[in-house]
Nucleic acid binder design. Structure first.
Length: 211
DNA sequence: CAGTCGATCTGCT
DNA sequence: GCAGATCGACTGA
């Protein structure tokens, strides 16, 4: 008997789960205060066939939670200073998940503002995957944490958003083939102001080494 | 507003 | 060594 239907809904490839996550609520209670976002933008990553996925080249200590049971969090550290969080999907062993790219803060504005450096607008508090993770206070200590117990909680909408209410397109910041239109695996609530601005993945400019 | 660049962890070559 | 699922500060119009 499945006592948690939301968890079982996640036991599918991330591309199938993505639209059902939009409009859902994700909370982190650190023991002092709770911050909740309404999810407005996600990005799907699949395993073996997805060159844009961290799991494409197999399991490593960093990405191992992606290979675990659905309904858990995968948090990674990147670019030397940012955390990003994924909802692990698929059956155990299938490294598929959804990167939380943007959301609207609906609870804990003051805590979220305090965690973020200098947000000019509340709309920017969780606009972008690293911003969202920072506003929610997510870091590697929460990697692998259950989304349906403990400090985290995930609530999917009772009925998924209407098909006319969301859009999909190429992923952001994924270089090479993984970012092409062959993988239109970014999903967002159409016209939502908290959705992150699209920026095409661009190879970093070659830096002059010695002037 | 568009372009550029630093921060400095992680995994693969 | 190097590039990366990024952000924010800074530059020059």
């Amino acid at each position: 008997m499945e006592t948690n239907t939301d968890r079982s809904r996640l036991a599918r490839p991330a591309t199938a789960v993505a639209p059902t996550l939009l409009g859902g609520l994700f909370s982190h209670d650190d023991g002092v205060s709770r911050v909740t976002v309404r999810i407005t933008e996600v990005e799907a990553y699949l395993g073996a066939d997805d060159p844009g996925s961290h799991a494409f080249r197999g399991q490593t200590p960093r990405n191992s939670s992606m290979f675990g049971a659905p309904g858990h969090l995968y948090v990674y550290f990147t670019y030397g200073m940012h955390y990003c969080a994924n909802v692990v999907c698929g059956e155990p062993g299938q490294p598929t998940g959804l990167l939380l790219r943007a959301g609207e803060i609906v609870e804990g504005h003051e805590t979220a503002r305090a965690r973020r450096k200098s947000p000019r607008l509340d709309l920017d508090l969780a606009r972008g995957p690293a911003r969202l993770a920072q506003a929610l206070g997510l870091d590697r200590t929460l990697d692998g944490a259950d989304l349906f117990a403990g400090p985290l909680s995930l609530t999917l909408p009772g009925t998924p958003v209407d098909q006319a209410a969301f859009s999909s397109g190429p992923r952001v910041g994924v270089a090479g083939a993984g970012g092409s239109t062959a993988y239109p695996w970014r999903y967002w609530l159409t016209d939502d102001p908290t959705v992150s601005r699209y920026r095409a993945a661009k190879p970093r400019a070659a830096r002059t080494v010695n002037g």
